[in-house]
Amino acid sequence: MLQLREVQAYYGRSHVLYGVSLEARLGEVVCLLGRNGAGKSTTLKSVMGLVDVTAGDIVFEGRSLREVPTHEITRRGVGFVPEDRRIFSDLSVRENLEVGARAGGAWTVERVCALFPKLASLDHQRGGSLSGGEQQMLTIARTLMTNPRLLLLDEPSEGLAPVIVRALADTILALKREGLTIVLSEQNVKFARRVADRAYIIEKGQIKFAGSLAALDADEGLRRAYLSV
């Protein structure tokens, strides 16, 4: 469904990705693991056209996404949830959802509220007044409103309390059951283990490992070398 082929990318003037290749197949959850600054975010942003891709190709459902404007990528069915959430803090919860709304799409305000019941009760609250966990829900819900078939989540568990992280994992699995393909970046291996079918490890802008989480678990050296704790 999504394929990155030898992608080279720059963030501002610094070269971040050095030939990243990875793929996500229809209906699977793929996790991109690695440390701060390893290139996880940049990889996801390169799909969205938010960083300068200088070489390689990014193919979604058989069509290249290179040189395609960001809003068009979204309209083709790729949803992106950024690391820092970027809620529109002056807008109400409902208005945040309306920004991404598509007429005739499968996801409506009612349907996302069914998935995140908490949001329904916060309808008229300002986005900026929500807690971290609520903001994370809102930012995922907001992206769902664009009716993505592929969902990119950038470090979704970061900064959330353990209880919330558990709920988040359930949400991701629920979305998988809905038929979404999901690529997420993570530093938290335990979280990845809980939600992902496959994992990649990225380090210094290069893919160092690709395989199942069981294979990753089996390789102590790999984890010590490339992952945090």
Partner: peptide
């Protein structure tokens, strides 16, 4: 403040 974040091991 996180002097080694983002560096190789």
């Amino acid at each position: 403040d996180e002097p080694t974040a983002g560096m190789a091991p």
